[in-house]
Design a protein around this nucleic acid. Sequence first.
DNA 1: ACCTGAACACCGTTCAAGT
DNA 2: ACCTGAACACCGTTCAAGT
Lengths: 201, 201
Amino acid sequence: MLTRERIVATAGALVDAEGLDALSVRRLATELGVQGPSLYNHFPTKADIVDAVADAVVERVDLSVFQEAPWHDALRRWAHAYHAVLTEHPNIVPVLAQGPGRRPAGLAMAEAVFGALVDAGWPPARATHIGALMRYLVTGSALGSFALGFDIDPDLYDRYPHLHNAPRLAAHHEAVDEGAFALGLDLLINGLLAQFEGTRR
Amino acid sequence: MLTRERIVATAGALVDAEGLDALSVRRLATELGVQGPSLYNHFPTKADIVDAVADAVVERVDLSVFQEAPWHDALRRWAHAYHAVLTEHPNIVPVLAQGPGRRPAGLAMAEAVFGALVDAGWPPARATHIGALMRYLVTGSALGSFALGFDIDPDLYDRYPHLHNAPRLAAHHEAVDEGAFALGLDLLINGLLAQFEGTRR
DNA sequence: ACCTGAACACCGTTCAAGT
DNA sequence: ACCTGAACACCGTTCAAGT
């Protein structure tokens, strides 16, 4: 028996294991023991299945911090949590980088972030910029590893002397990408905190 | 007559006008007045055509600033220039977000950025983080408009009270996205500059 | 109400055949 | 050396037919 839940769970596992390109209607149907067209009884298009997979990932990001901590602390902890979830499901990030659209969990997350900033006293226009900035950093870093973006063939770097150690990046890719994300988040939040306190006195 | 140059130029125009999904081997061939398989005399796979289109975009980013200005100034001006080029060719950004790979212009850009940071005195590990951070911000912001990521249907936001103005974001999307990017770049570079001067004394 | 087989209009890629 | 037609193994989606 086919249900939306089973379809989304199987599609999500397929995307995690083999990437977005491996998710085809026929392939997903086979995995569910059914023929391709059957899925159209439960979702209008393949894009809706992909959206549901993406929203299931966002649903796993804890938003309770926004009720517990001051805005800068909550923002930092939420960004780390969001980043951690995306690191576990990197193949769906291209969808999330397009914004919440009509996805309920995406909208709930935007509401929590934007609401916390406005309630803390940030002007709405500034809160929008901060929200955008956070999405840029989190999805930008999750979309493709910086370290793995360099080929491991050493001969490739003969004409780029400063990059002679680039082939070694791949071996430490988690540490490199994690460190860059943490540095960026620190710089952004510390800078915002300084601005915030500057306007308060 | 088919040349790599003509193929890349036509493919780039097609991607700009209709998106990456519209670029198919048959469609591109038709636009070039030729049959699909002909393209395989000039490129081994479609992915190589896409890579060439991406590298042609990166080639348009001016790197001369790194010879003229102190690292923080050069970094800021380069990031703005890169961001401006991507804003003109948003549909190819998903490819650039995967890193330089084996693309010559991508590698030359990485060499210029990393080289300038190391030559200025940043430790290589830190320079790597800074380079990664810049790619996260620039590609993250170019990959999908934050403002256009929200649906314009006002009824959608009934259950998200803080987002009641979200449907109006689309009308000012350039200003919103531009402002968020500029804010992020300022925060990052000012923060890095403070760190740099802190270690110098 | 839900699943199927057949069909439509597409894909990327290979390869023998032409010039 | 370069282009073509035919073919292979795929796509997303529609729809009449079955239960």
